[in-house]
Structure formats: structure tokens, C-alpha cells
């Protein structure tokens, strides 16, 4: 059974990249819906494995189209039975899709990752000293002290992360359109998505290099440009 794999939405009912290949080497084509179109290719199965190769291919199709069009990326593995069902799904979302396309035209996303922010979190000396003293305490007291210590470390870590975020934002925000930051406490990793105008890419990259130079103790990585995954606001009708 042939299905349609859908990569994204473009701001035109057609595009001229007839040579663009999608999954399994199938031609990528437009499924027009009003004044925009879904970007799709035939898929001879109902599922797709998220291998690095297939996810990169998804991104490659979007990246190619982004050179000429505003593009909204769809989540990987969006598969529909046929064009009719796809249009039925897009129709009630059309106004919201058009709004996002206008807002994101000419903009791309960068990913930022700060991975060693826990270096200043833990006070090992304090922990060892407290640990030795705790041996003589009753079990209940030891439990509560350990719990309090974990809470203190987490709070200190979050405070440190906020400070790091503020410092990095001072470098990056002036050359970006928008940013979303998040802290993964378990892995002590700060991540951010930056929305950047295409004409500001060089300035943004320079700002990242500058930020790294100003904060050599931090392990800051930056990858992109990606399709603006983190900045789409449109939701499916049942989620409204």
C-alpha cells in the first residue's frame, strides 16, 4: 500500500525542485492546499524507522526547500494514506499555518547546548565533611540531611544555570529574533533554540564564538541552521 510521507509545509502551491528525492529515493512533490502546499513523497510502507540517515533526509528536504520558500517542518514520521486525507487535515489549520509561514519566512533555527554547567554546583569538600559527621547521626536525621543536601545542590545548580543563561543571552539575543531556553537538571545541560534571520547568520555565529571566548570554562556547542522546528505555533484542531 502506498502512503504519503509529509516533510513540511511551504508558502507556495508548487515548487520547482522536481529532482529532489525523499525517502527510498522517491520524488518529492507538492500537495497544494489553498495558497500553500504540503511537501510529500510516496512511501511503500506504513512506518519509518528514525535512523540518523532517515532523519537527516527529512531535514535535507526541508533545508533544500528553505532556500526558496518559507517552510514549516513537520514532525518526523508524519505519514498519511493519501492526498485527500492530507488536505482534509490541513484545511482547518490553514489560517494558522499561513500565519506561521509569514512569521517564520527568512528565518532559521540554531541549537545551542551547554554541557558542563554542573562544574560549580557540587561542593565536594562540604559533602565529604558532612558525610563523615553524618556517620554518628541517627538514620532518620541522616536521611533528612541528605535530602536537604540534594535540594540545596539542585537549587544551587538551577541558580548557576540561570546565571549562565543570562550571560550567554547577553551575547546572543541582540542578533536573534527569538530564543527558547531549557534546563535538563538530570544531565545538567542547558539547551537553547535560537531563531535567526538568514541575513544575521554570520553575526549570530560570531556572537557564539565571542560567547565561547568570554566563557572558556563553559562547554558551549552550536549546530544549525535547522528548519525552525522550535518556533512553530500551529496545533492540530483537536488540541485547540
Amino acid at each position: 500500500m502506498t502512503m504519503l510521507y509529509v516533510y513540511g509545509i511551504v508558502d507556495s502551491p508548487r515548487f520547482d525542485r522536481t529532482s529532489l528525492k525523499g525517502h527510498d529515493g522517491a520524488d518529492v512533490f507538492a500537495v497544494p492546499c489553498g495558497d500553500c502546499a504540503a511537501v510529500a513523497s510516496d512511501l511503500s510502507r506504513r512506518t519509518i524507522a528514525p535512523s540518523p540517515r532517515s532523519v537527516w533526509l527529512h531535514e535535507h528536504v526541508l533545508d533544500t526547500l528553505m532556500r526558496r520558500h518559507a517552510v514549516l517542518p513537520l514532525r518526523f514520521a508524519t505519514i498519511v494514506p493519501d492526498a485527500g486525507m492530507l488536505r482534509n487535515r490541513l484545511r482547518p489549520m490553514h489560517r494558522a499555518l499561513a500565519g506561521d509561514l509569514r512569521r517564520l519566512r527568512g528565518k532559521i533555527e540554531f541549537a545551542l547546548r551547554v554541557t558542563n554547567i554542573h562544574a560549580g554546583w557540587l561542593h565536594a569538600g562540604d559533602a565529604e565533611r558532612d558525610g563523615a559527621a553524618a556517620q554518628v547521626l541517627p538514620p532518620g536525621t541522616r536521611y533528612l540531611r541528605a535530602k536537604a543536601e540534594r535540594w540545596r545542590e539542585r537549587t544551587a545548580g538551577e541558580d548557576a544555570a540561570r546565571r549562565i543563561e543570562r550571560e550567554l543571552r547577553r551575547h546572543l539575543d541582540p542578533v536573534a529574533e527569538n530564543a527558547v531556553w531549557a534546563l535538563a537538571t538530570r544531565s545538567a545541560t542547558l539547551t537553547a533554540s535560537y531563531l535567526v534571520e538568514r541575513k544575521e547568520v554570520s553575526a549570530f555565529v560570531a556572537a557564539v564564538v565571542d560567547a565561547r571566548a568570554c566563557h572558556p570554562a563553559l562547554d558551549v556547542s552550536c549546530t544549525g541552521p535547522w528548519a525552525p522546528y522550535s518556533f512553530v505555533t500551529v496545533r492540530p484542531p483537536e488540541a485547540w
Partner: peptide, 24 residues
């Protein structure tokens, strides 16, 4: 690849809000 996976698998436009299971 981690940055791309975070985006392509968790973000982007979702056409169906429920039970999207197309990942083999």
C-alpha cells in the same frame, strides 16, 4: 544528530494530536 533528533522527533508541526505511531 542529537540536536536534530531533539527537533525532528519532538517538535515541528503535528497534524494529529493523538496516537501518532509511525516510527517502526
Amino acid at each position: 544528530i542529537a540536536d536534530l533528533l531533539d527537533r525532528a522527533l519532538n517538535k515541528g508541526v503535528v497534524l494529529w494530536g493523538e496516537a501518532t505511531i509511525s516510527l517502526a
